[in-house]
């Protein structure tokens, strides 16, 4: 197994595997930061979630659930316990899910709210509108990577 190859079903095309590997490390840091930061400083995220799903237990469950999922996914990508392709696919699903919550908040007139997605430095800075842009760019890049991965895989099978 090469240094950049992932444990599960990666594409045997070294340059592209290298790109996927780097992207999965970036996503690992991204999700780990989001999870740990929210665990340490959940106030802004709670205020945002309470507006979308209702205050009290529903919002608290969403916060705790998202901390567990984000931290587990982030660390699994950083330690390469999860393959790059699987990690990118799960990230794509999670980003789409969180974007749905953000769109729901925006539809309720909360576009200028602080979403608290990354706590600390972004409590006031990252509004719902800003976060939707960040998610949209990530989703576009990840979807493009998966499309290229799928195309190269198909071409290799044909060859």
């Amino acid at each position: 197994m090469s240094a950049v190859a992932s444990p599960q079903g990666e594409l045997p095309s070294p340059p592209f595997t290298h790109v996927l590997s780097r992207v999965s490390i970036y996503l690992g840091a991204f999700w780990t930061w989001a999870g740990i930061a929210k665990a340490l400083s959940p106030e802004a995220a709670y205020a945002f979630t309470a507006q979308v799903v209702g205050g009290g237990m529903p919002a608290k469950f969403v916060i705790v659930g998202s901390v567990i999922v984000e931290t587990a996914l982030g660390l699994a990508l950083l330690t390469r316990a999860l393959g790059s392709r699987a990690g990118i696919m799960i990230s794509l699903v999670l980003l789409s899910l969180f974007s749905t919550l953000l769109i729901a908040a925006k539809a309720q007139g909360g576009g200028a709210l602080a979403c608290g997605c990354y706590a600390f430095f972004a409590t006031d800075a990252a509004s719902v509108d800003g976060e939707l842009w960040i998610n949209g760019i990530h989703v576009a890049i990840l979807a493009a990577l998966l499309a290229v991965h799928s195309y190269l895989g198909r071409r290799q099978r044909v060859a």
Partner: peptide, 27 residues
């Protein structure tokens, strides 16, 4: 990888407990 995944999950659950403790008094 399975052991690494288990360790990551355990750490994540720990973070979840920390989040639950910190979010509990919020109202």
């Amino acid at each position: 990888p399975r052991l690494r995944l288990a360790a990551c999950a355990a750490f994540a659950v720990g973070m979840g407990v920390l989040a639950a403790v910190r979010v509990a008094p919020l109202s």
